[in-house]
Design a protein around this nucleic acid. Sequence first.
DNA 1: TTACCACTTGGAGTTAACTCTAAGTCAAAC
DNA 2: GTTTGACTTAGAGTTAACTCCAAGTGGTAA
Lengths: 113, 113
Amino acid sequence: MTIAEVSKKFGLSQDTLRYYERIGLVPSISRSKSGNRDYSEEDCRWIEFIKCMRNAGLPIEALIEYVTLFQKGDETIAARKELLTEQRKLLVEKMDEMKKTLERLDYKIESYE
Amino acid sequence: MTIAEVSKKFGLSQDTLRYYERIGLVPSISRSKSGNRDYSEEDCRWIEFIKCMRNAGLPIEALIEYVTLFQKGDETIAARKELLTEQRKLLVEKMDEMKKTLERLDYKIESYE
DNA sequence: TTACCACTTGGAGTTAACTCTAAGTCAAAC
DNA sequence: GTTTGACTTAGAGTTAACTCCAAGTGGTAA
């Protein structure tokens, strides 16, 4: 798949896709004979995963670390699990904050009736 | 209340409190005779409100608009309600994304057992 | 064979939200 | 009466996460 196709498929700009690769957030993509990126199925799965995690606000830095660990193989499974568990904890905390704020907004909106 | 007290009370840095005032996110704070900020009870309520909204990720720009409308008096009530309703919608959307990601994280963490 | 278009790279620019610095003022303590 | 420490201001610097730009290349179409 070309960068244009991947960009369209996942709704990420070509610049963002190149940026993610440059910083190591996505494993490096192989090139066609003319030097253009050629995304594999697995590359696409990574991109979809990263997009989902970023949408929920997980920081790029943590995701880079996850990808890096992944590439080091099975001996990093414990570390990967720990990383995800920590991010999960932060996510739940954030959601709790948001829930409180949502209730407050609801109350405020109602009082504007 | 001095800026030091407000900073401690709400866990916002003095720089952040000054910044919020400068950009109009908090109504301007009156000064003591020596020129220092003297926060009233109402100022504190604003700061607590802003902090709560910011913790949930509401953008500063939207909050400035809300404060500005508030200061214009009762004729802006409809606009204020609309603004809050829009932000509420965005908040719910974000929470939905996060919920999906949380489920995915849970699944992934479980599969690492 | 020249024009076009999608791609490449390295690097600079942008945005949101702070955070820090420098130079100065004021009141209280020593 | 000078030093200390909390404050003031304007403005510069930082960080995360993109986004844009310029200069160049490779394949296709007129």
